[in-house]
């Protein structure tokens, strides 16, 4: 029985990381593309745009980080 629980936890960790990385990936790529457009339109604001882009990406990344934490919990705190 414990083997099944362990295997399910590992599988769940993999699925959690895989699905959890989808959203932040799409969001961060979208933000970077928009920032590229903005820099191309007005290149004098590039420092501000880059800073805002990095900040927005870091905020968008947080759900991925939560899934990482949950995956680590599943691997190390189960079984």
């Amino acid at each position: 029985m414990e083997v099944i629980v362990r295997a399910a936890a590992l599988l769940g960790a993999g699925v959690c990381m895989g699905i959890g990385a989808l959203g932040p990936g799409i969001g961060q790529g979208y933000v970077a593309g928009k920032a590229c457009e903005g820099i191309a339109r007005s290149s004098e604001n590039s420092a501000l745009l880059t800073r805002t882009m990095l900040l927005g990406q870091a905020v968008a990344e947080s759900t991925g980080i939560y899934s990482l934490v949950i995956a680590l919990l599943l691997i190390f705190a189960t079984g």
Partner: peptide
């Protein structure tokens, strides 16, 4: 948790 997850990962 954002800081922790990034550094630990």
């Amino acid at each position: 948790f954002r800081l922790f997850g990034n550094v630990l990962g």
